[in-house]
């Protein structure tokens, strides 16, 4: 098990302000890591930087050959326009790996889409417009979309916020599936009980630096 991500002296800024500096460490291939820390400590920014979506103010992030097509980022769902006239099936199918702009969405991809919606407990709701969904159901759709992306590196930003317990349990089982399949998962989380129970590794951002696999016992 080699490293999938190596951080070397990473510095991140947001709007000119330094939010993280001197951050180094590695994330192993196939590991399941919770990214924790107080609000404003730079968790989302770090996640976006790992996905290659936020420029580094200093240092280096080595993704060891994992391309952006092999990376899935589930951003906080609230950024997405929920009134958009589109069905659950289409949201998921549009993300199927490497469909691109013009390639046809064949029977295989539609099957993968249905299977993913099944997995998150939305069987039979394929044709429902997303504006008719509850917050929890919508988060399930986003998880189904992440499933069909079939990525080696999966980054989740507060995936269980505004989601009820039953949905959280179901979505956690999806996360464990990914882990069992050897995919690397990093999730930004706030619920420490959940982190202790389900995440073998943690990375805690405090102030401007990070602590690896620490802080849990004390918490």
């Amino acid at each position: 098990m080699g490293a999938v991500i190596t951080l070397e002296d990473v510095e991140l800024r947001h709007g000119g302000r330094v939010i993280l500096s001197g951050l180094s460490g590695t994330v192993d291939t196939g590991s399941l890591t919770a990214l924790i820390g107080p609000n404003g400590s730079g968790k989302t920014t770090l996640l976006r930087a790992i996905a290659g979506l936020h420029p580094l103010a200093g240092g280096r992030i080595d993704r060891h050959g994992v391309s952006s097509a092999d990376t899935a980022l589930l951003a906080q769902g609230s950024h997405l326009d929920r009134s958009f006239p589109i069905t659950c099936r289409d949201v998921v199918a549009l993300a199927a790996t490497r469909v691109g702009a013009f390639r046809s969405i064949g029977r295989g991809r539609m099957a993968a889409t249905s299977a993913a919606l099944d997995r998150v407990g939305l069987a039979g709701m394929e044709s429902r417009p997303i504006q008719a969904l509850s917050a929890g159901q919508f988060q399930r759709v986003l998880f189904a979309r992440t499933i069909v992306q079939d990525a080696k590196l999966i980054l989740l930003d507060e995936p269980f916020t505004a989601v009820d317990t039953a949905t959280t349990q179901l979505l956690l089982s999806v996360v464990h599936d990914w882990h069992a399949q050897g995919r690397t998962v990093i999730a930004v989380l706030h619920d420490m009980d959940l982190v202790r129970e389900h995440f073998p590794h943690t990375m805690m951002l405090t102030g401007q630096t990070a602590q690896w696999d620490a802080g849990l016992q004390a918490a």
Partner: peptide
């Protein structure tokens, strides 16, 4: 198709 995806979720489009 790309226009629909970009209108729905520009962040996702940028990431993928």
């Amino acid at each position: 198709r790309p226009l629909v995806l970009e209108s729905l979720d520009p962040g996702f489009m940028a990431a993928t």
